[in-house]
């Protein structure tokens, strides 16, 4: 009897411990939101929301400080757009190839390789962008500046190809074989089957891969901090330097940063904007994905 009681107690205790571990992940989210909001709050007391949203210059550390977040947001959108122009076509073509055309052996061999590609540290990609890709591009566009959005975006695009392709491939492989067989039986070619049957059926999965890739590119830091230059500029010129939200945070936190200073406040402001962007895209992506999973079942 005593033994049974003791055992039950241990069982309950272990369950409680495991629950606490699981609950602590919620705590992390709480701390993220809490620190961002409390550290950024005094900033919005000083700077009006209208200046923040509609000013086009971002010079918080200068004497004549201007706080137009649009400058950093435009830089972020620019590099993200360039990255997506590379990642989406490359990712989807790779996914179609692996899911519809490649033999099982090729697939077994390439999937781990793609994973390795995704494992390369981002600072190494930054090195590529600044010291190898930029000089190469300067041969093609002679007036390209040493720091530019183009090479940062291109390298970032290559970086997220594995991400897009593996998510899209998962979606395509989830399409029932019977649909393909039906299409082939009607005399359609492999190409027609892939693009008119498989891709439309897997559309929500591929769409969610796109959206998640956007979120990835928006949050990417090192490549843009190294290669895109650190000049906040409102505009969309891919050949010149620019600055993203993430790069600004890196730039400022490299100097001395006492708590409560202007620089310190602004990184949390950028953090909030960044989190809002990525969270929105993540939630959209997950919702699409969730719906797809339900449909397939």
């Amino acid at each position: 009897m005593k033994y049974k009681l003791k055992r039950q107690l241990t069982e309950k205790l272990i369950e409680l411990l495991l629950f606490l571990a699981a609950a602590s992940s919620v705590l992390i989210t709480f701390f993220i939101v809490y620190t961002l909001v409390t550290e950024a709050f005094p900033f919005f007391k000083e700077v009006g929301l209208r200046d923040f949203l509609f000013e086009t210059e971002w010079t918080p550390l200068f004497e004549n400080a201007k706080y137009g977040i649009a400058a950093l947001v435009s830089g972020t959108l620019l590099t993200t757009t360039i990255a997506l122009c590379v990642a989406l076509p490359f990712g989807v073509i790779t996914a179609v190839f692996l899911s519809e055309y490649a033999s099982a052996r090729v697939r077994e061999f390439t999937k781990p390789l793609l994973e390795l590609l995704a494992a390369v540290p981002t600072v190494v990609y930054g090195y590529f962008a600044m010291l190898l890709v930029t000089p190469f591009l300067q041969k093609i566009f002679p007036d390209l500046s040493g720091f530019n959005a183009l090479s940062a975006g291109l390298v970032m695009g290559i970086m997220i190809v594995p991400y897009v392709s593996s998510l899209s491939e998962d979606a395509m492989r989830a399409v029932p074989l019977s649909l393909r067989e039906g299409s082939l039986a009607l005399g359609a070619s492999k190409f027609q089957t892939s693009f008119r049957v498989v891709i439309p059926s897997a559309f929500s999965g591929i769409a969610s891969a796109f959206v998640l890739a956007i979120s990835r590119a928006v949050g990417e830091t090192m490549v843009v901090a190294i290669a895109a230059g650190l000049e906040p500029k409102f505009g969309f010129n891919p050949f010149g330097p620019t600055e993203t939200l993430t790069a600004y945070i890196v730039q400022v936190s490299q100097g001395d940063l006492p708590q409560g200073s202007v620089g310190y406040r602004t990184i949390y402001v950028c953090g909030i904007v960044l989190l809002l962007f990525t969270l929105t895209f993540n939630i959209i992506g997950q919702t699409i994905r969730h719906r797809m999973e339900k449909k397939v079942k």
């Binding site: 961002l36 990417e220 936190s253 990525t278 895209f281 993540n282």
Partner: peptide
């Protein structure tokens, strides 16, 4: 908890950095 973990996985790493700086 599940939803929370999904969203945490999508938070950019730099955000963890500034959270840790304050906390």
């Amino acid at each position: 908890i599940e939803l929370n973990i999904l969203n945490l996985a999508g938070v950019p790493s730099i955000i963890y950095g500034i959270m840790a700086l304050s906390l």
